[in-house]
């Protein structure tokens, strides 16, 4: 069997002695599209920060290509939550994308090859024509594409996105998921979302996080996950295609 890209074993984490994650164990295979879902405050963002090596676990371990994640941070393209960036900061789209190349060659400065990489990444995301716009002047969906472009500047093996559709309208979401599907051909993708739409277009595995983690290696949610993960039954509209999001109702009603 292939080595997993990311391997999480018996992971525990707490903020100020309040447990956030308990005994989390799962693997992410190469070219997987893992959707991490769960309620707000359930520990989704904390889990990916542990996977990225931005936080240190209380117990247990995270291995990325069999190494501690902080040692291989160049493998990660990271798209943080939109709400965490400094709104109103004067910066152009191109400068945001250039940020992706920081410390790429152990120097504080940015050079010509970095500018080329930024331009290429903008091209991939179809945002080249906006490169001189101020980032605040873009729509939520356009901004998200720019953040993905920034993550792609180092051609990462793993793309990690935290709530990429939080400020994107419904039409934009579908487009964004299609883009991610394309990117998934050449790299592993981990998406945190409480938008269940992520599942039925792309996901090859689903993990539901609510302090504990419930893993399902197909792109569908089981009723068990919903009950355990959300602590109450969740009504879902079964879109059916191409993945079922709900198990088939037994009584035909």
């Amino acid at each position: 069997m292939d080595e997993p890209v990311i391997s999480v074993k018996n992971l525990y984490f707490s903020y100020n002695s309040v447990p956030v994650l308990e005994n989390v164990t799962f693997d992410v295979a190469d070219r997987e599209f893992l959707a991490i879902i769960g309620p707000n405050g359930g520990g989704k963002s904390t889990l990916i920060k542990l996977m990225l090596g931005l936080l240190k676990p209380d117990a247990g371990q995270v291995r990325v290509f069999n190494k501690p994640p902080a040692k291989v941070s160049y493998c990660f393209g990271y798209v943080p939550q939109d709400v965490l960036v400094n709104k109103g900061f004067p910066i152009s789209v191109f400068e945001v994308v250039l940020m992706g190349r920081l410390r790429h060659h152990r120097r504080a400065r940015i050079g010509g090859s970095d500018r080329e990489a930024a331009a290429r990444a903008l091209e991939i995301m179809g945002m080249r024509k906006y490169e001189n716009h101020k980032i605040d002047d873009l729509s939520g969906g356009q901004r998200e594409r720019v953040f993905i472009a920034r993550a792609l500047t180092i051609d990462p093996d793993i793309l990690v996105l935290d709530e990429p559709t939080a400020s994107v309208d419904t039409g934009g979401r579908a487009e964004l998921y299609n883009l991610l599907k394309d990117l998934n051909r050449t790299r592993t993708i981990v998406v945190v979302s409480h938008d269940l739409m992520v599942m039925y277009s792309n996901a090859t595995a689903v993990a539901c996080v609510n302090r504990q983690l419930y893993y399902h290696d197909k792109g569908e949610i089981t009723q068990d996950m919903l009950d355990l993960g959300y602590q109450c039954p969740v009504e879902l509209i079964a879109h059916g295609q191409p993945h079922r999001v709900l198990k088939v109702h037994e009584d035909g009603s």
């Binding site: 965490l84 960036v85 400094n86 940020m99 920081l102 504080a108 920034r150």
Partner: peptide, 22 residues
């Protein structure tokens, strides 16, 4: 001037700056 790109990164998106090793 020397830390210009780093300053932009930590001012705009500190989580991302951390991951890139700033």
């Amino acid at each position: 001037l020397y830390f210009y790109r780093d300053l932009i990164a930590i001012s705009y998106d500190v989580e991302f700056a951390k991951l890139r090793g700033v």
